[in-house]
Simulated assay, not measured.
Amino acid sequence: VREGAAGGVAVEVVPSLDLTRPVATVTFDRASARRLGACDLAGVLRAGAALLASEQLGVAEWCLGTTLAYVKERHQFARPIGSFQALKHRLADLWLDVVRARAAARSAAADPSAVSVAVAQSWNAGVAVHAAEEAVQLHGGIGMTWEHPVHLFLKRAKAGEIALGTPGDHREALASLVDVRGPE
């Protein structure tokens, strides 16, 4: 725990899944403060979630593009592994997921309403994780080593998945916003 410059502020660095993005708990105990104005905390968190959806799209696009390049150059049985039909189907499905994620992220960026942000987060978080998991798996052994950055994208995707609410949290919020009732 490190004491802040002002009295009554403590910063405790906590372990982070994504080592490129440190996380800390900041505690205020009788710290001096002054009001800057009204703050719509829900709106701030919603804007952050909308931006995070775009980052998740970027993670998914990087993972897909890197994996496509890899399966074109990696050979097995004297053929590029990308020519195997099973891999073609997995990558085609992933491409469709990324296209949908792009639409959701653009919608949330253009209209950061509660509904569009909930849609983007409930979809994009899972797509980023899925794309990163596929990238690790399709890169084979190199994907699990420090020699290739794909594992960093998996960690970023997993950390982003829980950063501002899980996909399940956002699906629940969406159901509430559009007045969808669950099974009775």
Rank of each mutant, 00 (worst) to 15 (best):
V1I: 01
R2K: 05
G4N: 03
A6W: 00
G8N: 02
G8Y: 02
A10K: 09
V11W: 04
E12P: 00
V13A: 11
V14Y: 03
S16G: 09
S16P: 00
D18V: 02
L19A: 13
L19D: 07
L19I: 04
A24T: 03
A24L: 08
D29W: 00
D29M: 01
A31I: 08
A33N: 00
A38L: 10
D40Y: 06
G43P: 03
G43N: 01
G43Q: 02
L45R: 11
R46C: 02
A49S: 14
A50Q: 03
A50D: 02
A50L: 07
L51Q: 09
A53G: 05
S54A: 14
Q56W: 02
G58P: 01
V59F: 12
V59M: 06
V59Q: 08
A60C: 08
A60P: 15
E61T: 09
W62V: 08
A69N: 13
A69Y: 03
K72E: 14
R74Y: 12
H75T: 15
A78R: 15
P80W: 07
I81N: 05
G82P: 10
F84H: 09
F84C: 03
A86F: 09
K88P: 13
R90G: 00
L91M: 15
W95G: 08
D97A: 13
V99C: 11
V99Q: 14
A101H: 12
R102S: 13
A104T: 02
A104M: 08
A110L: 15
A110N: 12
D111N: 14
P112N: 12
P112G: 07
V115P: 01
V117L: 05
V119K: 15
V119T: 12
V119G: 05
Q121A: 15
A125W: 04
G126N: 15
G126E: 12
G126W: 05
V127N: 07
V127Y: 05
V127S: 08
V127H: 07
A132D: 09
E134V: 15
V136D: 04
V136Y: 10
Q137I: 05
H139V: 00
G140Y: 09
G140H: 10
G141A: 06
I142G: 06
G143P: 06
M144G: 11
L152E: 11
F153C: 04
L154A: 08
K158W: 04
A159Q: 13
E161K: 13
I162C: 02
I162K: 12
A163Y: 06
A163R: 13
G165K: 06
T166C: 07
P167L: 15
G168N: 12
G168C: 10
D169K: 10
E172G: 09
A173Y: 12
L174S: 13
L174E: 13
R181C: 02
G182K: 08
G182D: 11
G182H: 10
P183C: 01
E184W: 14
